[in-house]
Structures are given as C-alpha cells and as structure tokens.
Amino acid sequence: MRSRKYRLQGAGLDLALPYLMLAPGLLIVLGVLVYPLWDGLRASTKAYRYGSVVADVGMQNYIKLWSDPQFLNALWVTIEFVALSVTFEAILGFALALFCLREFRGIRLLRTILIIPMVITPVVVAIVFRLIYASDAGMLTAISEWTGGGQVQILGSPVKAFFGLVVLDVWEWTPLMFLILLAGLQSLPHEPFEAARVDGAGNWRVFADLTFPMMRPVLAIAIVLRTIDAFGTFDQVFVLTRGGPGEATRLVSIYGYDTAFKFQQTGYAAALFVTIGLVVLALAFSAVRLLRRVDAS
C-alpha cells in the first residue's frame, strides 16, 4: 500500500513536473514580452496629453502617421541608412570572411582583432566617432590642418553627416557579418571544392559556382538579422548627431523616442513603433520567402 502511494505520487509528479519547470519561463515571457506588446498596442489607440490618456482614438494615430512629414522623412532616412549600411557590411564581411578562411601565421589574432568593434559599447563608439568628426577639434580636422588643409566638416553637412553615420555603423557591425559568414564558410563541405580544383577551376569560378551559391542561405540570414537590428539603431545617432543637421540623420527610432518621451505623445509614438515593427516583420518574412525560393531553385 505504502509502495503504491509512492508510485502514484511519482506518476503525478511526472505529469506535473514539465509544466512546473516551464511555468517560470512562461511567466517571464508573458510578463516581459507579451504584456508590453499588448500594452503598446492598446496605447497606440489612445490620445495622451501631459502623460495621461485623454481619449480613445481607434486607428487615428496609425492614419495620422502617413500624413506626418516628419515621420515619412524619418522612415525614408532609416530605409536609406539600413540599405546602405547592410549592403556595405555584407560585402565587406564576406570579403573578410573569405580572407580569414585561409590558415596562416597570425590568423587567429587577426580574427580576434576583427571582431573587437562589435564588442565595444555603441555609445562609446559614437563618442569616439564624434571626436574624429568634430570640425573644431576632431582628428580629421587635425590631420587635414597638419597636411595644410582646412577644417573638415562632417557633422554640419546633411550628406556628409549621413555618410558619417553609415561609416560608423559599417565599422561597428561588419564584424558581426564577418563572424556569421566565416562560420558558414567553415561549415561548407570540402569535397566539391577539391573536385573543382582537380577540374582546373580558378578562384573566381570556384567562388561564383560553388562558394556563393552554397553560402546564400547563410548570407540571407545574416542580412535579415542585421537589417532587423539596423532598423532599431538608436544609441550611435543619439550621441553622434541627435538626428541632425536638420533632419538628415533622424531615424525613426530617434523620432519615436522624442515623440514618446520629449513631446509626451505616447499613443502616437506607440503607433509609430507598432508600424515599424510590422515593416520589419514584413521584411523578415520576405527574406525568408526569398530564401526558400532560392533553396528550391
């Protein structure tokens, strides 16, 4: 009898244990992921004044976004920034990964050095770049004046400030691309490459017919990850330009932050971020579909 009771307890525990083990994680996910999302969605349908809800406005905040020139400008700047940065990062990251695939003396040290930018806090990176770009006391101006030139104006010109921001992002995040692509390259099977070499294929033929096609899924994943991440770029812009000069580097993240916290339009800002979230989701789905199509072909 005593032994049977124990067995029953054991069976009950067997049934309950998985749920008990999952419960803390589930609660955390509900608390920190689902609830804020739901609350954000709810806030996006309200009008706020002075930090408090004053009216239920349904979808008005979403409709208003598309006639807000500041939002549209910020969205366009963000798209340009993401497209340029991610393209350069993918090209450079792939080139570096191909280079570092070879084994030679010092390659381990080189690989380590190459990933350093990625591990530096973005705010610190932005401060360093500000010290490089500043027209009065920046490093570029110092070099220019030392070589007989004048002040270098980066942050005061809309086009140069924008490209200055792209350069910063490329410097910081190319290592991530490099790391993902290097891992991808190292996992490719050796046999096709050996066969191609035996058949007399040159470097370009090997790259065009084998490496690139085989790497396309990894490349696509790396690009999707970086694209999603680049859409949320905030720290570097906040420190480097605060969105200026004018609106030249004002990304949606900066505009959304100002709208929510500086101008206290919480509902409108929530609608903005939900919209951006949907845009990023749409991009991710498109990329995944593209990837499947590539795989199928």
Binding site: A134, S135, D136, A137, Q151, Q153, L155, G156
Partner: peptide
Amino acid sequence: APSGVVEFDSDQEGAA
C-alpha cells in the same frame, strides 16, 4: 562665426 558652427553646441562655443 567658425565654419563648423552648424554643428556647434555649448562645449564648442565655450571652447571658442
């Protein structure tokens, strides 16, 4: 004013 005044904030104007 200095040519880079478009990007000047209080630290740069103070330095000038």
